[in-house]
């Protein structure tokens, strides 16, 4: 009882801070998404002034921004492109990240901490810089072209920069540590004797891998996919710097609506819809974990 009261006192300051700088601002985005576009600065005309006018507020709610979002195929396409690219990047990151995580657990114990640190380290170095590093590699006459032409694999520049492939490479590269760490965490705790038992009973290596290792690693795989997919959907920097003008992902559209077109209500409507896309996989993951708890 006493510890609980002290917990409440400690929780007070962070709670107030997050209420003021996280919850309240998001409610303002919600309100803004239901406002009229106006030419004033700041460019919006709010429909709601005080608590006494709730009826007027409800009557005056303006779903114009959301209607535009639905009717103009640009926005729907940007959402679909974002989901497609983030999904593909997640899959590729899994295909690279799983063997990497698996190999770390098989390395000698004394190396493992160092190897994990080596995987985390790029994540701490600036995101922007890591994306920039790929520009020099992928651009025409860049490092990749020169290497491929020198060893004779291709005779012409690949023109990878400003394509969807470049965005995929940038995403896999930037988010790979998020895939490796959760998978490593579950594989490391895995009980090896299960594999040995299966081997004693005559299971072949591939069977052991598919029927024991993969199912046991499932929570880590799910967490890794989630950690790559969710930030990937809203990504702005990577499509902006590595993608061409045709690679319109929704995070980039939000940025453009806000900074270039100065349409704040529309940008807010994009933000609200984007959040729905982010929360959905989270609830699915929760549901999955919850079902497993009850099954146990």
């Amino acid at each position: 009882m006493r510890t609980d009261r002290r917990a409440r006192i400690a929780a007070l300051a962070p709670l107030l801070w997050l209420a003021a700088f996280f919850v309240l601002p998001f409610l303002m985005v919600l309100r803004m998404s239901l406002s009229d576009t106006a030419q004033a600065v700041p460019p919006y005309a709010p429909h709601w002034i005080g608590f006494g006018q709730i009826r007027e507020f409800l009557a005056g709610l303006d779903v114009e921004a959301f209607r535009l979002l639905w009717e103009d195929s640009l926005y729907l396409n940007a959402f679909l492109t974002a989901i497609r690219i983030a999904g593909t990047a997640t899959l590729i990151a899994l295909l690279i990240g799983f063997p990497l995580a698996y190999a770390i657990t098989r390395a000698p114990k004394s190396w493992q901490n160092l190897l994990v640190l080596l995987v985390i380290l790029p994540f701490w170095t600036s995101f922007l810089i890591r994306v920039y590093a790929w520009i020099a590699i992928l651009r025409p006459e860049g490092v990749l072209d020169r290497v491929l032409i020198t060893i004779g694999l291709t005779s012409e520049p690949l023109r990878l920069l400003n394509t969807e492939t470049a965005v995929l490479i940038g995403m896999v590269y930037s988010y790979l540590p998020f895939m490796v760490l959760p998978i490593y965490a579950v594989l490391e705790k895995m009980d090896r004797s299960l594999i040995e038992a299966a081997a004693d009973l005559g299971a072949k290596p591939l069977t052991r891998f598919l029927t024991i290792t993969i199912p046991l690693a499932k929570p880590g795989i799910l967490a890794g996919c989630f950690l790559v997919f969710v930030p990937g959907i809203g990504e702005f920097v990577i499509p902006d710097l590595l993608g061409g003008s045709e690679t319109l992902m929704i995070g980039r559209v939000l940025w453009t609506e806000f900074f270039s077109n100065r349409d704040w209500p529309l940008a807010s409507a994009v933000a609200v819809s984007l959040l729905a896309f982010v929360i959905l996989p989270m609830m699915l993951l929760r549901g999955f974990a919850g079902r497993k708890e009850t099954a146990r």
Partner: peptide
């Protein structure tokens, strides 16, 4: 409380940025 604390971690940056600006 734990959910509220963790929420900024998964919130897309563009949304956090936009909402703080509006505030």
């Amino acid at each position: 409380f734990g959910g509220l604390i963790a929420a900024p971690m998964v919130m897309p940056e563009v949304i956090t940025g936009l909402s703080l600006l509006l505030l």
